[in-house]
Design a binder for these strands. Sequence first.
DNA 1: ATGGTAGCGCTGCTA
Length: 272
Amino acid sequence: MRIATWNVNSLKARLPKVEEWLSYAEPDVLCMQETKLADGAFPAMAFAALGYEAAHHGNGRWNGVAILSRVGLKDVRSGFIGEEPSGLEECRLITAVCNGVRVASVYVPNGRSVGSEHYEAKLEWLERLRADIASSCRPDEPLAVCGDFNVAPEDRDVYDAARFDGATHVSEPERSAVRALEAWGLEDAFRLVYPGEEKLFSWWDYRAGDFHNHRGMRIDLLLLSRPLARAVTWALVDREARKGLGSDKPPSDHAPVVVDVDDDAAGIAARP
DNA sequence: ATGGTAGCGCTGCTA
């Protein structure tokens, strides 16, 4: 089973690239973030034509998350447990069961600056995510929490840690919030495959030529529960998708992150 | 260089 996550930075602007990427990367499940679409504008037909069922949670110009699956999609839930849709809420979480795996697509708030109200809201959001997971799943069940966490877990996940000293994405409370997810029973899939690698990034600022100068961060994570983590066979950041895929239009500022899990080793259902 | 670029949507916000 191949699971991927990609912050597409507007699905309206990125749909041709996402379609192209699906056709060559062939993920079984793709979690997307920052679709920037309302549910009514989500291009479900385009994905159905490629063999994917889809679930989307969005209400307008910001945020928006989705799950695509070609191995089944059921038990869809938008937002946190008990969260009432108001039409004005920030759409940052959607979950579904795909091929026997509970999948969550998450878009963690950016936080803007350390100490700001947005930063506090980011920490609260991460704790709410942890509590939501802990109340709805057990660590011995197959669970994949995938998305843009807006947190670089370690200094080696940042191109220049000193430059980001005192900034969001690297602060200790943010990293501690991610470690709390790991303490519950999730593992950073990318680190299972590349335990010693440094400076393998998933996001690069559009500005100042950061991508071509290797100035990025690894903030897009696939956090897997133990049954999936022990069955990981391969992982990759697809930097090619950050280059624009043969079109004149700019790419997303994030690259897709992909992980392969052996179905038999994970003890999950065979594909339908 | 308290810069730079992209998306949304039409003015400035968000990232």
